[in-house]
Nucleic acid binder design. Structure first.
Lengths: 166, 166
DNA sequence: AGATATCGGACCAATGCGGTCCTCTATGGG
DNA sequence: CCCATAGAGGACCGCATTGGTCCGATATCT
């Protein structure tokens, strides 16, 4: 439903992988272990570093390590670091005068904020330590009300056939 | 943190606007009232129709109307209809053999599913009727399961109070 | 000093998204 | 009965973002 960029996916993979290590590890090693191309991994790690989620040690024997304990870093932070703060296309420029004041528009736009908060909150309940567990217990947000088929996420179990098109 | 496409934004605005009406309304009228360019609005409404969220009446005096009551349609459905099911770049092609089996990778990927569920669940708690209210009460994600020790998310819980009400 | 490894840029290619248009079909009104 | 209206359903294009690569500079360990 929501688009997750590949970079963000990489970021979560990398961060989770890092959660299982203690000492700093080089980008090369990290990339090799996760199957992510080195230059791209470097870019992601860099962004993660800018958000203070990982720390880097330079020079020989250097590398990346988590800035905090795996339990203290939420995937919400990771995603935010890579995806940037929500982009809900808030009332755009001059259009706001014509349409925004019109009627429901701005009210709806304001509520987008709430939606974002709800999502962010959900994401803030999952830590890297949780991700590292093979079977995440899942944050079970209250319940599951009206959903109408078409989205039946298979718990665990990797999709054997890749439907995606590269 | 998560990218919301403009189309999705339009969809929510349109659907919410529709929630305040009873009879069918033409795309032209809808577009004019929401400030969304007609052709684009038509496209969005079309997608909403394909997801059975709105029904269309053809011919003169025709137009779009909600397929169900405003309280029975969640924004999760609207977003899913426009954004399509999550795109978490599931284990891509042959790479999966090398890296996926490697270690954390696939485990992490499986957990992405959980993340998605959490988000989807959060979004399923907000109906169009809720969106129509100027001040959405917010879905108050109760949740809060797995976290033991060393877990100190800056997130806290969902801010149930209306933060900003412009 | 030299080797190693990150940092911080610039840089390019491609996918996809936002947006438009045109034709066809169905329905209601004159 | 015929025409105007209004949606369906395509094809289509341009631009922006994203995914990915490369380079020089800096810092650290042997």
């Amino acid at each position: 439903m929501l688009r997750i960029s590949k970079m963000t996916d990489y970021g979560v993979v990398l961060a989770t992988h890092l959660a299982g290590l203690d000492g700093p590890r080089s980008v090369r090693a990290l990339a090799g272990e996760t199957g992510i191309p080195q230059p791209t991994a470097a870019k992601v790690l860099k962004a993660l570093g800018a958000a203070d989620l990982v720390v880097s040690t330079r020079g020989a024997l250097g590398g990346y390590a988590l800035a905090r304990s795996a339990g203290a870093i939420t995937i919400g932070e990771v995603i935010t670091a890579l995806e940037g703060p929500i982009a809900v296309t808030e009332c755009t420029d001059d259009l706001s005068e014509t349409a925004c004041m019109h009627e429901t528009n701005c009210g709806v736009r304001a509520n987008w904020q709430k939606i974002n908060e709800a999502v962010e909150s959900a994401l803030s309940h999952i830590s890297l330590a949780d991700m590292a567990r093979s079977t995440l217990r899942l944050v079970t947000i209250t319940s599951k009300p009206a959903d109408r088929a078409t989205h039946t996420p298979a718990s665990a179990s990797v999709p054997s056939d890749a439907t995606g098109t590269p």
